[in-house]
Amino acid sequence: MTLVIDTEHLTKFYGSSRGIVDVDLDVEVGDVFGFLGPNGAGKTTTIRILLDLLRPSSGTATVLGLDARADGVSIRGRVGYLPGEYALYPRLTGAETLRYYANLRGGVDWPYVDTLARRLDFDQARRAGDLSTGNKRKLGLIQAFMHRPELLILDEPTAGLDPLVQREFYAMVDEAHAAGQTIFLSSHVLPEVQRVCSRVGFVREGRLVAVEDVAALGKKAVHHVEIEFAGAAPASEFETLAGVGAVRATDHRLGFTVTGTLDAIVKTAARHEVVAMTSHEPDLEDLFLAYYGEGAADAAAGEGADDAA
């Protein structure tokens, strides 16, 4: 398989402060790759190097087989990019802004821009200065998709979008994937990555710590389960099950964590009268816990608030 994004030992320091360290990233043609990590982990830094907005301290980055630094213009002609943070020209309307961006790009099929705007329910007549965060994001998404690029690089694409638009965005990603486009998106929300991505790379403190198939994630994931029984909580029956830990029992309630599938606990619970049962999706910290143990999760949870850039 040809690599659409290929970085080797990619490292970026801002003065003496860490951006990313030794990132080896392989994204293949047709991947929907989720770049997952807490804020400040180095996701934005990596993306901005791919777009040639930042220059790496060391290491190399290749996009679509071209050198990120030397062939930036050709790369950007074939990539759609949504920055994590950006401003628009307050006095231009949405339509004028998109027209300007389409002109800078060249060869944009304008009816398709209108189609995208309708899909995202974006009002092109309003001035950019009057747009809400969500609407600015929509404009950003439209310009990223407008030329049907081979590769979409989307930095936190759903931040600030309301759930309905978020769903439309997921549909757009699915369609782009079906059309053979490659998608690389960053996120700090696990369910989002699970919803749209086929592969996920975990970033932590500037390092790419693991790359997994999303389908395999569930097997290692930690679920928090809580069961309310009609009778006394049968704690002892659960404590002995494989993968179950941290069991806490009050008279009718039982709470515990499960690593892997829920099959055994459901079958065990079925032997009793169950009043209610809840299972929480594993969050990012839990996943780090499953992968790297206590120390890693603490470190991930304690990261700074902002992506260094």
């Binding site: 930036g72 050709s74 950007r76 943070e85 950006y86 628009l88 800078l104």
Partner: peptide, 14 residues
Amino acid sequence: ENGTLSLLLAFPVS
């Protein structure tokens, strides 16, 4: 400083 340069440089303009 306005924050418009990032997007401007995302287009195929050197």
